[in-house]
């Protein structure tokens, strides 16, 4: 039975696509069959982050409109055997998505034996974001430790509780998980950023991961290699932990404390 996980946030630029790509890779690395679907029609990015932008022939909208089969549109990842990408269309807009079409594609992916379908939501709360979350079983809400992002996430959590198929049909609630990204413990200490506990308290949810602010994220995007694949990076380890927690493992939180520089590091600028 495939599990549909939407990665959403409301606010733009908080790291939804980076998170989608890393979670998809993390799950695939553990042997799960994973399809990651870009719902950001017209502003497609996932293919860039996944490093498969030159292999996009058919996209999500083509499949919905019957221009090609799902198999033709799924792009197999070069690094991980069990990972596939369904790119968004760059030349259309979000109106090209229909609820019925999305349902058909997700059903077909589930029937193809995928374990996880990761839906990378566009920013906002309009049609694209709505359809990305509508069929979800679980949601990863990506939030930056600042008030506007927290407010938008609160809004998204409200929609997850009311405007999804599970809510409308009175089924069990969508399971919600918070993922903090761009976390900078030093700025939390100085009071410029909300702490993990602040965000947990405001949103009333536990966090599934805290990804530290890291230059590795940008360089990973530029290289078309999801940051989780860069084993030397703290961001990678944090995503790896988040994937473990998503699978029900208990892992202690890391990268949330301001690592005081040692004497030598301070002296020599290390």
């Amino acid at each position: 039975m495939a599990e549909i996980i939407v990665v959403t946030s409301g606010k733009g630029g908080v790291g939804k696509t980076t998170t989608s790509a890393s979670i998809a890779c993390g799950l695939a690395r553990r042997g799960k069959r994973v399809a990651v679907v870009d719902f950001d029609i017209g502003l497609r990015n996932l293919d860039l982050i996944m490093g498969c932008e030159r292999r996009v022939v058919y996209d999500f909208v083509n499949v919905i409109q019957g221009d090609c089969t799902l198999k033709q549109a799924l792009i197999k990842d070069k690094r991980l055997e069990t990972l596939y990408v369904l790119a968004a269309s760059q030349t259309r807009d979000k109106d090209a998505l229909s609820s019925e079409g999305v349902r058909r594609v997700l059903d077909e992916l589930a029937n193809d034996g995928f374990d996880y379908i990761i839906c990378d939501s566009p920013a906002g709360i309009e049609k694209g974001a709505h359809l990305a979350m509508y069929f979800a079983d679980r949601a990863v809400v990506v939030v930056n430790p600042e008030i506007s992002s927290v407010r938008d996430s609160d809004r998204i959590l409200g929609l997850l509780a009311s405007k999804t198929q599970r809510a409308e049909q009175g089924q069990e609630r969508v399971r919600e998980h918070l993922l903090l990204t761009r976390y900078n413990p030093r700025r939390v200490t100085t009071g410029e950023m909300l702490s993990v506990d602040d965000v947990k308290e405001i949103l009333g949810l536990d966090v599934i991961g805290v990804v530290p602010e890291s230059p590795d994220v940008l360089s990973a995007s530029n290289a078309g290699l999801p940051v989780i694949m860069n084993e030397d990076s703290d961001a990678s380890r944090a995503y790896e932990d988040a994937v473990a927690r998503l699978l029900g493992e208990e892992v202690p939180l890391r990268f949330t404390l301001d690592a005081k520089k040692g004497f030598f590091a301070r002296m020599f600028g290390g």
Partner: peptide, 27 residues
């Protein structure tokens, strides 16, 4: 008994309203 999120509205007509969770900013 669920958190009332930003953008949500809850109205108890002709009665009291008891919320056993939080009420978010903008709710």
């Amino acid at each position: 008994s669920q958190t009332v999120r930003s953008g949500q509205r809850i109205y108890a007509r002709d009665r009291d309203l008891v919320i056993t969770a939080g009420v978010g900013a903008g709710a």
